[in-house]
């Protein structure tokens, strides 16, 4: 039976290394056996047969950044819930009330972003008129 943390986690590292080796050797086999016949048309990015216009490194919707930021908040909340969930029977009603308080705080923030429209992905014309 493994006793230390490094002994416990070593098989996970080995698994990851095996995966990397297998993936790299598959790519290697593809490079070795695959044919090579390059030309500039083939090297251009795919745009349904049209000549590519501009670059793909453009600005994109700020919505995606918002989702990422909200994700960090809520994922951290979920991670905070895990240790509580492990011991919540021992903590009993005290731990439960503390957790409910924590959730109320997070949920009030959630209510705020919801009403602010951060979770809306359709443009509501009425709302737009009111905001501007």
């Amino acid at each position: 039976m493994p006793t230390t943390y490094s002994e416990l986690y070593f098989p996970v590292l080995v698994q990851v290394l095996f995966a990397a080796v297998v993936a790299a050797s598959l790519i290697g086999a593809g490079l070795f056996f695959g044919k090579r016949n390059r030309n500039s048309a083939k090297d251009s990015p795919y745009e349904s047969g049209m000549k590519p216009v501009g670059s793909a490194r453009e600005r994109f919707s700020v919505k995606f950044y918002l989702v990422a930021m909200l994700f960090i908040l809520f994922d951290i909340e979920a991670v905070f819930l895990y240790p509580w969930a492990v011991v919540y029977r021992e903590l009993g009603i005290f731990g439960f009330i503390e957790m409910v308080l924590f959730m109320i705080l997070v949920l009030s923030g959630f209510y705020f972003v919801w009403k602010k429209g951060a979770l809306d992905w359709t443009l509501n014309p009425q709302r737009k008129a009111k905001d501007s």
């Binding site: 790519i27 086999a29 695959g34």
Partner: peptide, 8 residues
């Protein structure tokens, strides 16, 4: 495995 490995 026999396909070409293209990089844009």
């Amino acid at each position: 495995i026999l396909k070409e490995d293209t990089v844009p």
